[in-house]
C-alpha cells in the first residue's frame, strides 16, 4: 500500500500550477487536501507522474459571497467551510450536509473543490452542488469557463474537466427566502461512503430531492406538494441502482423511499 513514484511540485502561484498542468497534461494530478487522491495513490488506482500540490496557494483560500452564491476557493477545506460563521444563514443545506463528509480527521485536510473533482458517486458535496444547481469555476492556461453541476459530473468519478484544467472555485447558490432544507444518509459507519444520501430543499410550491450513492451521478427530482408515496417510489426506481458489496439495489430503493420521506417531511415542517 505505497504509492508509485512521482515528482512533487509545489507551485508558488496559480499561474505556475496552470503552466505545469498545460505542460504535463494527463500525467499530472492536482492535490489539494489529498484525502481521496492519496488513498487512491496508495492503492495504485491513481499513478500520476507529477503531483501538483496547491494547498499552499493563498489565492485559493477564500470563501466569498458573490453573484448570488457562496464561492469556495479550491484551497478551502471542508472543516473551514463548516466553521464559516455565515454558512447556516446563507446556505443551511451545506451546514447540514458537511458533518457527513468523511470524518473530523479527513475534513481537516480534504477540500470542498477536491471532493467535487473526485466526484465519487456516494460523496455528499457533488450531491449538494447538483441539488442546489451550483457550478464550478474552472481555469487553465487557455482561459476560464463555468461548468454547471449537471454538465460537470459526467459519470462515476468522471468530470467534464480537460487534462489542463483545474477547479479554482465552487459556487453554491445562496438559500432563497422562505425555503427549508434537510439532509440525511445511511452508511456502515458515520463518515464512511454513503449507501444512500438524500438531501432536500423546498418552498411553498414543492420540494427538490437529491440522492447520492445509488447511481453514478447524483439524481435530482422536483416534486410538488403533497408528495405522494407513488412519486417517491417512481423516483427510487428511476435512479437505477445496482447490487454491490454494501447493499442490494432493492435495499437502496427502500432507503430512498424511507429517508426521502423523512427529509421531505422535515422540509415541510420547517417551512414558514
Amino acid at each position: 500500500m505505497k504509492p508509485a513514484a512521482f515528482d512533487y511540485a509545489q507551485p508558488d502561484t496559480l499561474g505556475e500550477a496552470l503552466a505545469l498542468m498545460a505542460k504535463k497534461g494527463e500525467a499530472a494530478r492536482i492535490c489539494a487536501g489529498g484525502q481521496s487522491l492519496a488513498a487512491m495513490m496508495n492503492m495504485r488506482l491513481a499513478t500520476p507522474e507529477v503531483l501538483i500540490d496547491i494547498a499552499g496557494l493563498a489565492e485559493l483560500q477564500t470563501i466569498d459571497i458573490a453573484n448570488g452564491a457562496i464561492e469556495v476557493g479550491a484551497g478551502v477545506t471542508q472543516a473551514e467551510l463548516l466553521a464559516w460563521p455565515k454558512l447556516a444563514e446563507f446556505q443551511p443545506l451545506l451546514a447540514q450536509l458537511l458533518p457527513w463528509v468523511g470524518h473530523y480527521q479527513t475534513r481537516a485536510r480534504g477540500t470542498v473543490c477536491g471532493s467535487l473533482a473526485h466526484s465519487d458517486p456516494s460523496s455528499e458535496l457533488p450531491l449538494a452542488l447538483a441539488l442546489l444547481g451550483g457550478d464550478v469555476f474552472v481555469r487553465s492556461q487557455r482561459g476560464h469557463r463555468i461548468i454547471n453541476a449537471e454538465d460537470f459530473q459526467v459519470g462515476m468519478m468522471a468530470t467534464a474537466l480537460e487534462a489542463d484544467e483545474m477547479i479554482v472555485a465552487a459556487r453554491f447558490p445562496l438559500a432563497r427566502p422562505a425555503t427549508a432544507s434537510a439532509f440525511e444518509e445511511v452508511a456502515q459507519r458515520h463518515g464512511d461512503f454513503a449507501i444512500v444520501a438524500v438531501g432536500a430543499v423546498g418552498n411553498k410550491d414543492g420540494v427538490r430531492l437529491g440522492v447520492g450513492g445509488v447511481a453514478d451521478t447524483p439524481g435530482v427530482v422536483d416534486l410538488t406538494w403533497p408528495v405522494a408515496d407513488a412519486a417517491l417510489n417512481d423516483f427510487a426506481w428511476s435512479l437505477g441502482g445496482a447490487d454491490d458489496q454494501h447493499a442490494t439495489a432493492r435495499y437502496r430503493r427502500e432507503l430512498v423511499r424511507r429517508i426521502g420521506r423523512r427529509v421531505i417531511d422535515e422540509v415541510h415542517n420547517a417551512l414558514p
Binding site: 512533487y8 472543516a79 480527521q105 485536510r109
Partner: peptide, 13 residues
C-alpha cells in the same frame, strides 16, 4: 493544530 491522517500525507508536504 489539526488532527490529520499521516498515511494520507507525504513527508515532503
Amino acid at each position: 493544530g489539526k488532527a490529520v491522517r499521516s498515511c494520507l500525507l507525504y513527508a515532503v508536504q
